[in-house]
């Protein structure tokens, strides 16, 4: 009897100790993550306006914000723009970042210099990037239009023209974020065993076959992680849009976050903004779950 109770007590005590050790982390996570999410969810069912709330408390309006949001054609357009932007940005960033990683990994000399140079765009603050591109693409003194004029090519008002504004935002985002993909995949490439390449070479595999049968299978988890991180980040695109186009021209570059800023945050209608944030979180979770499932499976 005594023999049976001893291990049980030790196990309980170990469990209690484990729970005690993990509880600060759980507490911090609850305060930092769960509370804001629940707070946002709660306010999404109210007509909470920051200033009006000083005089009149927010009222419960059930699904009023969600109905208004989902019946708004401009919100639906913002969702489409965001999904289109995310898909294109992730595809281009993954392709370019992977190509850069393969190139630098194959270099026998100058890897460090190339690595540093290629990383520079990612190290710049987004505001600096946006303003630098705005200057370069300025219709007045921008170097891009000047070069194009010299070459007798047509010039554009890049951020105000419906034909070019979305493409320019995509280009700038790819330019800035492809180095992030490069960095992660370059690190992953370093861990691929050289013996597998040698074996493939002995078996007569060329560069393309080595890429598809050795390189990619070895780094597929890193590829999935990169795609996941870039998807989440691209989906939340805001600063570049807000600084460069404000969602225009004619809503062609309006993303979900820009819409929420224009119609919720700017006017301090945080109830409406919260509903939008919840819808956005659900969409990100749906998109991310595909990657997470694949990475974990």
């Amino acid at each position: 009897m005594r023999k049976n109770r001893l291990p049980h007590t030790a196990e309980s005590s170990a469990r209690r100790f484990g729970a005690g050790m993990i509880s600060p982390t759980i507490l911090v996570l609850l305060v930092m993550t769960a509370y804001p999410l629940l707070f946002t969810l709660f306010y999404s069912f109210t007509d909470y306006n920051l200033l009006r709330n000083l005089q009149k408390p927010a009222s419960f309006i059930a699904l009023g914000n969600y109905t208004k949001l989902l019946s708004d054609a401009y919100f639906r357009q913002a969702i489409l723009n965001t999904v289109k932007f995310t898909l294109l940005a992730v595809i281009f960033e993954m392709l370019i970042g992977f190509a850069m990683a393969l190139l630098v990994n194959s270099l026998t000399r100058g890897q460090k210099v190339m690595r540093t140079l290629l990383l520079l765009p990612y190290l710049l603050p987004t505001v600096t990037v946006a303003l630098s591109w705005r200057m370069m693409l300025s219709p007045n003194y921008g170097i891009v239009n000047q070069v194009m004029e010299t070459l007798n090519l047509p010039v554009f008002n890049w951020f105000s023209d419906m034909r070019t504004a979305f493409g320019m935002l995509l280009l700038i985002d790819v330019w800035q974020s492809a180095p992030f993909v490069f960095l992660l995949l370059y690190a992953a490439l370093q861990s691929v065993p050289q013996t597998q390449y040698e074996a493939a070479r002995i078996d007569g595999a060329g560069a393309v076959k080595s890429l598809f049968y050795v390189t990619i299978p070895n780094i597929k988890n890193s590829l999935a992680l990169c795609a996941l991180l870039r998807t989440i980040d691209s989906f939340r695109l805001f600063d570049k849009v807000n600084l460069l186009t404000g969602g225009g021209p004619a809503n062609t570059t309006s993303t979900i976050t820009q819409y929420l800023y224009n119609y919720g945050i700017k006017s301090l209608d945080f109830g409406f903004g919260s509903a939008g944030a919840i819808v956005m979180t659900v969409l990100v979770l749906i998109l991310s779950s595909l990657y997470i499932k694949r990475a974990m499976g």
Partner: peptide
């Protein structure tokens, strides 16, 4: 008091008109 929302709505429609949408 609704001026911020007012100009956002009007500006959005004017943007559509100006761009021929």
């Amino acid at each position: 008091a609704e001026w911020t929302q007012f100009y956002t709505i009007l500006g959005t429609e004017m943007d559509n008109i100006v761009n021929g949408v």
